[in-house]
Each structure stands twice: as structure tokens, then as C-alpha cells.
Design a protein around this nucleic acid. Structure first.
Lengths: 189, 189
DNA sequence: ACCTGAACACCGTTCAAGT
DNA sequence: ACCTGAACACCGTTCAAGT
């Protein structure tokens, strides 16, 4: 006898994302998510394959959330600051986004807007490399900040601004760029 | 009746580090580590507080392993390449090192030598910021590479070289640096 | 068509009992 | 002083049974 679903994939992903932000990845369990959507754990298997799959979907949700917070910005420095602001407010989501748990497109989605902004500063030929450089630096900086690597000293806000200034300068001084030595830019991010 | 220990903290950490490299963090369990050192899981509690503590010790071991691979290098670009080479050979260890699971000093230990090399390129006043910039970029680049963010296109080796060139240039052009706007460097990393 | 309880395998942790 | 088996709580996953 057919019965209507008592929950949905979207509801499950949302519950998982909430648990991630409030308690961390280890709290994103089948049982906790099931309880939160009002069913028993075995029911989730009608909607997601297993726990790793659920966590991958939560990682994608995190990337979409981040993308929302970057949308509408066109200054590279504004985007870098927005990335850091979001990461400090959602540390578990940030780590999961860049952990490789999500689909291969997850991070590309999150940082797609960075590519547009990079293209306007560096030449188009170097836009891919420039976007990668800025994204990698900001990601690494925030990763280290969240991990406590900077806790012993210095003004972390100032260090972040220093990095943006230096990198923006490094990318701008090469505009228009000489013939690139790095091959043709690929489609990724 | 006193009896001699049948295992040791070092042996336990080594077993955990081996499991980490071979199978990933999720394989570093009390039971798997105990089996590997030839005792039962409850015995481990005589040597480590609990599983999170064991994983923190494994993270520290990873940082020390990385530091070993960076020791003896003085060129910034050599160190960046050595970091990447080690990370690609030990992806789980790399991720754990920069995950914040270890002690606060873990990452500082791993990247201490980067500070020395940075000081010789940028002024001493900017050495801390410069070291942070390079470490953050390399960490973020490798994180994204391991997560598959670059898999869709381009020459990743070339992109890494591009980043080193651009960053080294950005740090060198400011040598000696003007009065820094970023306050006094702290003792961290 | 979806949800459930029962079952199984597995893991972290505690603790009384062994040596 | 260290190790063990037994026990308990908890989690992932499967599946026959319910509606």
C-alpha cells in the first residue's frame, strides 16, 4: 500500500547541515539526523545511500551556502573578507567544504565568483591561476586560523589584510600579463 | 603484582600513524590500534586518555614527520615543493596536521623552518607575515588539490610553480620593507 | 511506497578480576 | 602495574513485517 513520505531528502540535508554547524561533523549521524526529521534511522536509507553519501550532500549544502554569501560581490578583497567572515561563523561548514568529502564540483561552485573577480584584475589568460592563488591563500589562511595556528601572536585581522594587499599587488603588476608559461587555463573553478 | 608493560605510548602512536597513512583517519580506532600493538582495546587507556587524545598525538607525529622532510632546506621554493611532495605522499597525514586536531604547536612546529627562509627574503619585520602568507597559500593549494578542486583542468604542477613565483616576487619587491602597518610580529610560527 | 522494530556487527569506555 | 573479559551505551546497516 503506497503511503506518502514522512520526510524528504531536502529536509534530511537541512537537518544534517544544522547539526554540522551546531555540533560539528561527528554529530552528523544517521540517528541524530533521523531524530531531527522525526523518523527512525533505517528510514533514511529510502532517501540517501548511506552516511558518507549524506555527509557529501551536507558538504554540497555548505558550499551552496557559502556561494550565497559571496554572490553579488565583485571586489576581490570584499570576497576574501566575506569568505573569512562566513568561515569564522561556520567553522565546521568551512572545513567540510574544503575537505574533499563533497562532489568534485563543490569547491568550484563555492569559488566560482572568485574567478570572475580575478579576471578583471589579472589578464584573462592568467585568470585561472590568479583565482587559484587567491582562493588557495584565503583557504589556507582561514584553515590555519581555525586550527589555532595564529593564536600565539600578532594581529590576525591585519595579517589577513596584509595578504590581500600583497596578493592583489602581485596579480595586478602583471596586467596585461606576458605570454603565460603555464599552459592553457582549464575549465575548473 | 607489578608486571612490565606489554606496549608503550610511542608504539601506540606509531601504530596509529601507520593506520592513518594506510587507511585514513577513520581507521585510527582504539580497536585497530590495539590489535596492531598486540593488546586489547581497554589496555590502551593505561597509555592514552581516550580516542581524541590518541588522534591528537597522531597529529603531532604527522607534524614531526613533515618537519623532518623540511629540515635542511633553505630555499623557500624548495620548501614549498617539499611540503607538496610530502602531502601528496601522505594525504591523510597532511590533512590531519592542518585540521586543528593536534596541539596548538603542531602546525607551528611543521612550518617553523618556513619562517627562517622567509626572513631571508622579506625583511625581518615582515618575516612573520611573509611566512604566514606562503604557508597559508601552499597549505590551501594542496588542500584544494587533494580535494579534487583542480581535477577538471590545467597543469597543476605549473600552477604551483606560478604561485611560488608570484608570491616570492611579491615578498621580494618589498625588501627592505617600508614601515609595516600590521603591528609587531608575535612569537607564533 | 514508505516506515518500523528487531537483529547483527562494530566501536568507545568502564571496571572488577586476573597475573 | 598492567592486561583482560564482560558489560553497557551507542552507531551503521539490513530486512522482514507492518500500514
Amino acid at each position: 500500500m503506497p503511503t506518502p513520505p514522512r520526510t524528504s531528502r531536502d529536509q534530511i540535508i537541512t537537518a544534517g547541515y544544522t547539526l554540522l554547524n551546531e555540533l560539528g561533523l561527528s554529530a552528523v549521524t544517521m540517528q541524530a539526523v533521523a531524530t531531527r526529521v522525526g523518523v527512525r534511522a533505517p528510514s533514511l536509507y529510502k532517501h540517501v545511500a548511506d552516511l558518507p553519501a549524506l555527509r557529501a550532500l551536507v558538504a554540497d549544502a555548505a558550499a551552496r551556502d557559502l556561494a550565497t554569501h559571496l554572490a553579488g560581490l565583485d571586489q576581490l578583497s570584499d570576497m576574501a573578507h566575506a569568505l573569512r567572515t562566513w568561515a569564522l561563523a561556520h567553522p565546521h561548514a568551512f572545513r567540510l567544504t574544503f575537505s574533499g568529502v563533497g562532489s568534485p564540483e563543490t569547491m568550484a561552485t563555492a569559488s566560482a565568483s572568485l574567478l570572475r573577480a580575478s579576471a578583471s584584475i589579472a589578464g584573462n589568460a592568467d585568470a585561472l591561476n590568479a583565482a587559484r592563488l587567491l582562493t588557495a591563500w584565503a583557504t589556507g589562511f582561514i584553515t590555519m586560523e581555525l586550527a589555532g595556528a595564529f593564536q600565539l601572536g600578532g594581529d590576525v585581522d591585519a595579517a589577513f589584510r596584509y595578504g590581500i594587499d600583497r596578493i592583489t599587488a602581485a596579480l595586478t603588476t602583471r596586467n596585461p600579463p606576458p605570454a603565460s608559461t603555464t599552459g592553457t587555463p582549464g575549465p575548473s573553478h
